[in-house]
Write a protein that binds this DNA or RNA. Structure first.
Length: 488
RNA sequence: GAGCAUAUAGCUCAGCAGGUAGAGCAUCUCACUUUUAAUGAGAGGGUCGAUGGUUCGAGUCCAUCUAUGCUCACCA
């Protein structure tokens, strides 16, 4: 860093302002290289960060990197003049520069810009960790890449400069979100915003973050879900609403969990969960095509095909298929016996719904690689879901499982206010008994439902996990720019 | 929350049995007007994560702490 401050001072001595205000960029690296036609000289102005320098005495080559990629610059003393060439001595890897020149192809075949003018646009004071690349048998081999995960997450800006695949993953994430937004807009849903700070948290089972409002001297929770607010808007008369929501859950962290994460929820009036299944499979197919150009996605050693339609299994069918055990219509005692036949240890306090969920989670879910809708869940675990139209003890709920992981969760939404009150009161009772993940009774939400909510289909989709799936990333930290870290 | 692992130069890593710390790239100086991991010659660069302990002597052994990674648990 001291060296770079000296170089900065030298540039100022030479009358060069190292932090000017603008530069008239006309072209970008990647399209320039891709559309280059031999023999054509195009005048260009490009800008970017210096990534390599090869100095040859009275001429030099260097690469600059812009948002699209890298392009080589050829700098000759005779062309840019004595003064500029002298100043170039104090340019470093990492500096951001602007180049006027014309395109050409070098002896070794690389499309480059022959500089006629070179400007410092921003002097970098910290050395960036440059990776060296070499082509071996047509494949790019990278040496000494900036690969320490802690540093990559703490200094994402450096990670993004140095690791192009990281930049690409986040572009894909943006593309994915754009595709969803376009899709939902095409269904005439309204994009809305609802409170992050909530006096009563609900809509999911999770521990919340707690905060305090000074002026009102009031405890507030960061939302664990936005479900109950979106339903209020359906009560209000919108036919469909959606929100990309940052939600916050005060739980452990892992490569699938970050304390704050992104969830898309959307609700559509007059529809049920059957409609939602069709909608989701068509959405996911569109996303895969838009982001990757194919419906095939690689997850670990598996190849997953997101082409619609997806297989549908009820939870009971799925359990039967993967364990050979019948769970439909069984009592809690019989289910407990089934679990012990499967060598599954259970907490003696849990009820039959939870037992089924445990069996499913242990023996079925990890085996569902191709996209599969699992439908018709036990009522106990779904306090916001409408009772099944024909099966007692079940609700109209589905989850989509891909590569052994849940990617979304949807219901025919419960709109019977009396039933809803009973279910939330059961939840509150559970909470009284020490289940701090059970929901509380949100009286205002109940009041809203009491005014009448149309039959509605609703869904929650974890955007981070969906991005992981679509981009083939193995850690949620690789799809969140600034994952939660302890301070250095 | 538990187990395992990691922490040495700007980056990526080595360091044998405890004996004054090493490589490649990056940096600096010189040479070089089509190079591309440019090349050739030379030089500088370190609180070995922190704190304590054992020892004549600790990067190395022990303990504690901190941060991170992986796995598990928790978590729709």
């Amino acid at each position: 860093m001291r060296q770079r401050r000296e170089n900065l001072a030298k540039l100022r001595e030479l009358g060069i302002e190292p932090y000017p205000y603008s530069f008239p960029v006309t072209h970008y690296a990647k399209p320039l290289v891709e559309t280059f036609v031999d023999g054509e000289k195009t005048d260009v102005a490009v800008a970017g960060r210096i990534m390599t320098i090869r100095n040859m005495g009275k001429a030099a080559f260097f690469h600059i990197q812009d948002s699209t990629g890298k392009i080589q610059i050829y700098l000759r003393k005779d062309d840019v003049g004595e003064a500029t060439y002298k100043a170039f001595k104090y340019f470093d890897i990492g500096d951001i520069v602007g180049v006027h020149g014309f395109t050409f192809r070098t002896k070794t075949g690389e499309v480059s810009v022959h500089a006629t003018k070179l400007e410092m646009l921003s002097k970098s004071l910290r050395p960036i960790p440059v990776a060296k690349e070499q082509e071996v048998n047509g494949e790019k081999v990278v040496y000494d890449a900036f690969s320490d995960k802690e540093q990559r997450y703490r200094m994402r800006y450096v990670d993004l400069i140095v690791n192009p695949h990281v930049r690409e993953a986040f572009v894909k994430r943006a593309k994915l979100i754009q595709t969803i937004r376009d899709f939902l807009n095409s269904l005439n849903l309204l994009e809305v915003e609802t409170p992050i700070l909530q006096p009563v948290y609900g809509g999911a089972s999770a521990r919340p973050f707690t905060t305090h409002h000074n002026a009102l001297d009031m405890k507030l929770f960061l939302r664990i879900a936005n479900e109950l607010y979106l339903k209020r808007l359906i009560v209000g008369g919108y036919d469909g609403v959606y929100e990309f929501a940052k939600v916050f859950r005060n739980e452990g962290m892992s490569r699938f969990h970050n304390p704050e994460f992104s969830m898309l929820e959307f609700y559509v009036a007059y529809k049920d969960y059957n409609w939602m299944m069709q909608t989701v499979e068509s959405l996911f197919e569109k996303i895969a095509m838009a982001v990757n150009g194919t419906t095939i996605v690689k997850v670990g050693e598996h190849e997953v095909n997101l082409k619609a339609p997806y297989r549908k299994l009820t939870m009971a069918e799925a359990v039967k298929e993967y364990t050979g055990k019948e769970i439909e219509g069984k009592s809690e005692e019989e289910l407990r016996a089934t679990a012990s036949e499967l060598d599954l240890k259970l907490d003696p306090k849990i009820g039959s719904g939870k037992i089924i969920d445990e069996i499913f989670g242990e023996f079925v879910e990890p085996k569902l690689i191709q996209p599969t809708f699992i439908t018709d869940y036990p009522i106990e675990m779904s306090p916001l879901t409408k009772k099944h139209r024909s099966k007692a003890g079940l609700v109209e709920r589905f989850e989509l499982i891909v590569a052994g992981k849940e990617v979304c969760n949807a219901y025919s939404e419960l709109n019977d206010p009396i039933d809803q009150r009973e279910r939330l009161e059961e939840q509150a009772a559970l909470r009284e008994r020490g289940d701090d993940e059970a929901m509380g009774v949100d009286e205002d939400f109940l009041r809203a439902i009491e005014f009448g909510m149309p039959p509605t289909a609703g869904i929650g989709i974890g955007i981070d996990r969906l991005t992981m799936l679509i981009t083939g990333q193995e850690s949620i930290r690789d799809v969140i720019f600034f994952p939660t870290m302890k301070p250095e």
